[in-house]
Amino acid sequence: MSGVPVLSVRDGHKRFGAVHALKGVSLDAWRGEVLALLGDNGAGKSTLVRCISGVHALDEGEIRLDGEIAAISTPSLARRAGIETVYQDLALFDNLTPAQNFYCGRELSFPSWLPLGLRFVSNRAMDREAASVIDRLKVKLPKFDAPVALMSGGQRQAIAVARATVFARKLVILDEPTAALGVRESRKVLDLVRQLRDEGNAVILITHNMEHVIELADRAVVLRQGRKVGELKPDRGNQHELVSLIVGAEA
């Protein structure tokens, strides 16, 4: 399968009324690779991500998964196809416990012949599974059965990333996962990202932190004003080139 990208966006367009947010963006993501998605605020990164994860639909263009055209019209279809997204606002439910957050929208439940909403939850199974994932990822939580409202920014971020790792089978998208974190908490999250990649997922990482890009990303795609303006392998040598691509000040 190594010849086919796990995700391939071709000539994607998206308009919101008069705003042309994506103007023909193409992008590939491969298994076992971290792809950095860069761009200034309003460049279209979040819109692109929301199209891939099924929140918005592309107006034009196509999305292929493992080479097949994929109809990702809703978030649950995207998740079923193996795409997990960690949104910038984390999309956590403050009033629910970590385990309840993990499984929200796809609860372990019975009996299976009923529609999901009418089934009974299997709390014990969900607690057990979630706890083992938390342990495997070495995430430290003060309390496993308290609502996440009472947890710190880093812990919440870890929960959101851990949730993605449970279900990711193809692609994990992380939208600025370290934006609100201190140095030590950022380090933890970057370790999680590495782990996701080593488990054979394609990872798309949106970030403004060039250090993290150079450290982690195998490839970087730069968007500006809804267009892809560059794609390169980030390293110390081309850091300046990357930044000027992002801000649009060609040297």
Binding site: T85, Y87, D89, N95, C104, G105, R119
Partner: peptide
């Protein structure tokens, strides 16, 4: 307490935007 529906009620009240993103109807 026992049904997925109820969990979703709490989810919708806790974070409506996330509920959409998590694929809850």
């Amino acid at each position: 307490k026992s049904m997925v529906w109820g969990r979703w009620v709490y989810a919708v009240g806790g974070n409506p935007k996330a509920a959409v993103e998590m694929g809850i109807p």
